[in-house]
Design a protein around this nucleic acid. Structure first.
Lengths: 259, 259
DNA sequence: GGCCTTCCTTGATCGAGGTCAAGCAGGCGT
DNA sequence: ACGCCTGCTTGACCTCGATCAAGGAAGGCC
C-alpha cells in the first residue's frame, strides 16, 4: 500500500516530485519558488542578494497591515499565517513549512500576520530586488503564478474542511497533510507505519482547523483510544495504518470513487 | 457616510477603481483580467480569438477533474465554484460575478465544479491560444498573477468567515460583499440606503457560508425582524442603514481599530 | 530540590446550529 | 382553472462542539 496513498494529488508535491526542488543539490537554499529549475545564472544572482534571518517561537515576523519589504522562503521550522477578528477570534489561513514561500511580489502591505510557530530560519530577499529579477526573467514570474495557483488550491481545499468537515475529520485531515509533508520532505518511504511531528501546539491546530483547544485534544485522544494513531509524545504521532487514518479524513483517496 | 464604507479594502475593487476596467469603454467585454489597461494591440488579438457561450441556471460549466480547454470571464450572470465530499456535503469555494475570471493558465484539469447559478454568459478563449498570448506578453502574465493573488486573499478572508464567524455574522458578511459588488458594478452611490440582488438561491448561500438552508433562512428572517434589512422579494434586499449591517458582520470597517 | 509557567487532558454543562417535518408562495405547463 | 414543481419559511427537537472548570505533566529558573 502506502506510497501510493501518500502521493498527494495536490500539485505542490507533484511539482516537487518531478524535479525535486526540495533537495536540489545545486540550490543553496530549499525553496522551489526560486530554484529556477537550477538555472545557474538565476541562482547566482539570487545567491548574491539573499540573507538569512531567524525567529523564535511565538515571534511575529510580519504584522497584518505592515509594509512588506521582503519575500523569502522557510529553510527550517514552521511559521503560520493568520487573521484575527477584532474580538480576538483567530483563524490560521496558511501554514509555512520548509520550502514554502512567503510574500507577494507586487503587493505593498501584508494582509495577515505571519508568526513563527517554532524556531524558524528564513532565506530572504529584498522585495524590490526580487521584483526587479522577476521583471528580467519571465521564467520566475511564471513559477510564481504556478505557486500562487497551488496556494489558491490548498486554500480552497481548506475552505471545504472548515465549512463542512466534522471535528474528527478535520483532525484526521490535518494529520494526513502533516504526514504527507513530512514524508515528502524526508523522502522517507514508510515501511512499518508513519512517524511524524506536528511541530505546532494544540492551540495552533485549533486555530488552523476552526476548533477550540479542548476539541482538538479530545479528538486526538479519541483517535488514540481507537488505535488509529499512537502518541510518542504530545507532538509526535505514529500511524500504524495510514489508510485507516485516511478513512477518517473524509478525503477521497485519490481522485475519488466517482467520475 | 456610506461611499467610504462601501469602498472595499480588498484590492480587487481598488484595482478596478484605479482604472475602472469594469466599464472601460474600449473593452469589448468586461473582464479586468485581459483588459490590458486598454492596450490596443492586445485587445485586438483577444477580440479575434474570443467566443461567447451561455449557460442556464444549474448547468454545470466544468466538472471537477475534467480537462480544461478554455479560460474566460463572466459577462452577465453568476457562476459558482464548489467542491463536494464523497457523501455529498458541498462547499462553495468561489463566486464568479460579472468581470470575474475563470480558469488557470498552466493547469491541465479543473479542481472543482463550476456551475451556473443564473443565466450566465461567458466570454471565452481557447486555453492554448490564451497561453500563447501570455508567453508573448509578460504584461498579461503579471496581471494574471495579480488577479490570482487577489483571489487568494479573498479565499483566505473566507476561511476566517468559515472557521470563526457565527451564522449571523456569515449572512451579514455575505450581504456586505454582495452589496459592495453591486455598488461597484453599477457605480451607484447609494443615497437612501442600498438595494441589491442576491442572484443566488438559499441553498447556494448555505453552501457558500458552510451552513444549512434552514439556518440561512432563519438568520435572514431575524435580520429582517430587527429592521437591519428589508426584503423586496426573496432575493432582493434593501438596506436602510449600511453601517448597521456592517456591525453585524464582525468585519473591521476599514483597516481595523487596532494597528 | 521546589516553584513557576506553559502546554495538554479530561469532565460537566450549555447552546448554536443541524436535522426532521410541515406548510406556504409563486411560476409553469396542460 | 388546476396541479405540480421548486424555492422559501417556520417549528420542534437533538447533537456536536463550545464553554467553564479543574488538574496533570514537562520544562526552566531560583
Amino acid at each position: 500500500m502506502t506510497m501510493n496513498i501518500l502521493r498527494q494529488r495536490n500539485v505542490v508535491l507533484n511539482t516537487a516530485k518531478k524535479h525535486n526542488h526540495l533537495r536540489c543539490g545545486e540550490c543553496p537554499i530549499r525553496h522551489r519558488a526560486v530554484c529556477a529549475h537550477c538555472d545557474k545564472a538565476e541562482l547566482e544572482q539570487l545567491d548574491q542578494i539573499k540573507t538569512y534571518r531567524s525567529f523564535g517561537p511565538g515571534e511575529t515576523i510580519v504584522w497584518s497591515g505592515e509594509k512588506l519589504t521582503f519575500v523569502g522562503s522557510v529553510v527550517v521550522g514552521v511559521a503560520t499565517l493568520s487573521s484575527t477578528l477584532s474580538d480576538g477570534r483567530r483563524q490560521m489561513v496558511g501554514l509555512l513549512l520548509p520550502s514554502d514561500f512567503l510574500g507577494r511580489p507586487g503587493r505593498a502591505t501584508a494582509t495577515y500576520d505571519v508568526v513563527a510557530a517554532t524556531d524558524v530560519t528564513f532565506c530572504m530577499f529584498q522585495k524590490d530586488e526580487f521584483e526587479r529579477m522577476i521583471a528580467r526573467s519571465p521564467n520566475l514570474g511564471n513559477r510564481l503564478l504556478e505557486m500562487t495557483l497551488d496556494e489558491l488550491d490548498s486554500a480552497r481545499e481548506w475552505m471545504l474542511l472548515l465549512g463542512r468537515k466534522t471535528a474528527r475529520e478535520k483532525i484526521a485531515s490535518l494529520f494526513v497533510i502533516m504526514a504527507r509533508r513530512d514524508a515528502a520532505l524526508h523522502q522517507s518511504a514508510p515501511r512499518d507505519g508513519l512517524h511524524f511531528s506536528l511541530h505546532i501546539t494544540r492551540e495552533a491546530m485549533a486555530d488552523y482547523l476552526g476548533l477550540t483547544i479542548e476539541t482538538v485534544s479530545r479528538q486526538i485522544s479519541a483517535l488514540r483510544r481507537e488505535g488509529i494513531i499512537e502518541l510518542v509524545d504530545a507532538r509526535t504521532v505514529h500511524v500504524p495504518n495510514f489508510e485507516k487514518l485516511l478513512d477518517q479524513s473524509a478525503d477521497d483517496a485519490d481522485g475519488g470513487i466517482l467520475a
